[in-house]
Write a protein that binds this DNA or RNA. Structure first.
Lengths: 184, 184, 184, 184
DNA sequence: CTCTAATCGAGACGGTACGTCGCGTCTTACG
DNA sequence: CGTAAGACGCGACGTACCGTCTCGATTAGAG
C-alpha cells in the first residue's frame, strides 16, 4: 500500500526536527495520517522502519559509487558518492547527524562487508575486514562532518581529503611499491 | 557514598550481557543492591552514569598516551594506548562493543577535541577538526575490531596498522615533504 | 466501559475494611482486576472516584426524600430517607462510618444547598444557610450513629428523633404560629 | 525542650495557609527551625502532633464552658464557649475550617463523651450518646459557619441560635412538658 | 576543668505510592 | 476484508515523602 511510503516519509520529516529515540510510533502514524494499528502491519518496531529506509538509501548510494568506480577509478567512485549525498543533503543530514546515525552506520558496514567479501583481495597486507571497517568509518565520519558544516567545503576538496586520508592509506598497503597513488 | 561505585560496577556488569538501551535503571539498582531512589541522588539519568564512567576511563587512557607521546614519539603513544586497553580488555570490550559505543565515542571525541585545541597546529593542510575526527574515529573503529577478535592480533602489529593507516595519513598532510615517517 | 463499575465496587468493598485515606489506587485496581493506568482513564484521583460514588448515591436519596416530602409532609420525607438508607445499609455504613465520611458530608451539603437555594424561604428567623447546615449535619450525625448500632433502633423511632431534634427546631422558626417560636 | 512548642506553633502557622493533608513533616520542622529527626523524638506522626494541639485547646474550652455552666446556667456555658473561641479566632479558624476539622471533631466528641458519661442522666427520652453527638456536631457546625463569616454574627445572637436550635431541642426532650426550660 | 554522655543538625539511604508516557494487544464499528 | 478508533494491561519513568540510620558538633553534668 502507499501506507508504507507515507510512514517512511513521515519518519524522515520527523527526524529533521527530533532525535530518533524520542520519536514515538504514535508521532509517526499521526504525521503519516494512518491508524496506529496499521503501523504494525508493515514493521514490527520503529527501528525496523528506520533500518528499511536506511538500507534503501544506502543501496542507492552504493550502486552509484560502485558503478562509477568500475567505469573509471577509485576517485570517480568517491566523487559519485559525495555528489549523490550532496544532491540529497537534507535526507542524509537527517540520517547521519540525527539520532539515527548508529543504525545507518551499522547498515552501511553490513552492506560494505558484503561487497568486500565478493570483491575482496585476500592477500592484502591489512586484514581485509579492517580495511572495510576503516574506509567505511572514515567515510561516514567525514560525511557527517561535511553535512554539519554551514558552508560546506566544495566537493572537489572533500573528495581529495577523502582519497588522501581515508581511502589511499588503506588500499596503498596492498601495493607497497606505489606509495601515494594515481590521479589526484 | 559507596553507592556511587556500586552503581558503576553494576552497570558495567550488566553491559557485558545486555545492550545499554534496554538496561533499565531498576536493573542497575537491583544489581547494585541499592534503593531505586538512591540512583537519582547520584545521576540524573542512566546516560549520565555511563558518561561518567566513560569519561573517567577515557581520561586515564589519554593521560597515559599523552605522557608516552610527549616523552618519546607518536608511536610510543599508540603503544601505550593499546597496551592499556589490553590490560583492561573486559571493561573496554564492554564500553566499545556493547550498546554504549555511541556515548563513549562522543565522550572520546569531546576530550580529544579539547586536547587538540590546546596543542593544535592550525597551519595544517587538513582542517584540524577533521584530523581529530578521523584519528579518533579510526582509532576507535580499530580498537573495537581488535577487542572483538577471539585471538587478538599482537599489540606490535595492531600499533603498526594504527600508525600506518590511521595516524600518519592525517598528520603527514601537515608536512607533505616527509611522506611516510619513522619506523614503518 | 465495565472498568468504571468495577472501580466503584472495588472501592466500596475496600472501604468496608480500611479507612479511605490509606487505600491506595493500586489497592483499588488490584481489587477491581484492572490495570493501574486504566484508573486514570476514568478518574483523576481516588477522591474523585469517591466523590462520584457519593454524588450518585446521595442523588438517589434526595430524589426519594423530596418526592415523599412533596407528596405528603416533612415526616414522610424523613421516613423515606431512613427507609432507603436501611435498605442499603452496608453501603451507607461504608460511606458514613468509614474514612469517607468527610467527603460524603461535603457532597451532601453541596447538594442540599442547591436544593435549599431553589426552594428556600428567605424570610426565616434563622439565616437560611445555617438551617441547611444544621439539618444536614444533624441528619448525618444521626444516620452515622444509627448505622453503627449493632441492633439498630427501629425506623419509626429514629424518624421521630430526627423530626423532633433535628428538623423541627430549625424549621419551626419559620412559622410563628407554632408553639415555640418567634423573636423572643 | 522548647522544640515541642516550636513544632506546635509552626504547625498552626502552616495550617493558616495550607490544608493539613499536604503539609509535610519537613515543612513543619523547617518552619520550626529544628532538625527533621528531632520531630520524631516528640511525635510519631504529624497527626499525633495535631491531635495533641487539638486536645489541649479543646480542654481549655471545655473547662471554661463547664465552669460557667456550673456557676450559672446552660446559656452561660454557651456564651463562655463562643466568647473564648472569638478571643482566639485565628487559631480556631485554623482548627475548624482547615483540613484539620475531622481530627478536631473526633477529639471534641471523645472529650464530650467522657464528660457526658460522668454527668449523664440515663433516664432521658433520647439515648444519651445521641444527645451528646447532636449537640457536639451542631455546635461545631455552627462554630465553623460562624468562623467562616467575613462579618461575624454578634455573640449574643449566635448564642441565641445555639441555644434554641442546638442545645434546647436535645435537652428539652427530657421533659416535654416544660417547653422552654432554662436552669432546670 | 576536663571528660564523657546526651542532644540535636545534617544528610545518605531503602522504600512506597504517586501520576505520566509509550508500548503493543485486542475489540468494535465503519466503508 | 481492511482500516479507523480507542479501551485496556503493562512496565519504566522520575518525583515526593516517608521513616531509619549513622555521623559529627555542641552542650552539660559527673569525676
Amino acid at each position: 500500500m502507499r501506507s508504507a511510503e507515507a510512514l517512511a516519509t513521515a519518519l524522515l520529516e520527523l527526524l529533521e526536527t527530533t532525535p530518533f529515540q524520542q520519536i514515538t510510533i504514535r508521532d509517526i502514524v499521526a504525521k503519516a495520517g494512518i491508524g496506529y494499528t496499521t503501523f504494525f502491519r508493515h514493521h514490527a518496531t520503529k527501528e525496523e522502519l528506520l533500518g528499511a529506509i536506511a538500507a534503501e538509501q544506502i543501496n542507492c548510494l552504493f550502486n552509484l559509487s560502485l558503478r562509477a568506480m568500475d567505469a573509471y577509478d577509485l576517485q570517480a567512485g568517491s566523487t559519485a558518492l559525495f555528489t549523490y549525498v550532496n544532491a540529497h543533503r537534507p535526507m542524509w543530514s537527517t540520517l547521519l547527524t540525527g539520532g539515527a546515525a548508529g543504525t545507518v552506520r551499522e547498515e552501511f558496514l553490513r552492506m560494505a562487508r558484503d561487497i568486500a567479501t565478493i570483491r575482496g583481495e585476500p592477500d592484502a597486507w591489512l586484514p581485509p575486514e579492517v580495511g572495510t571497517l576503516l574506509i567505511v568509518g572514515g567515510t561516514l565520519d567525514l560525511l557527517t562532518w561535511w553535512l554539519r558544516q554551514p558552508n560546506p567545503t566544495p566537493i572537489k576538496r572533500i573528495v581529495e581529503i577523502h582519497e588522501r586520508v581515508v581511502v589511499n592509506p588503506v588500499l596503498q598497503g596492498k601495493d607497497p611499491k606505489t606509495p601515494r597513488k594515481s590521479k589526484r
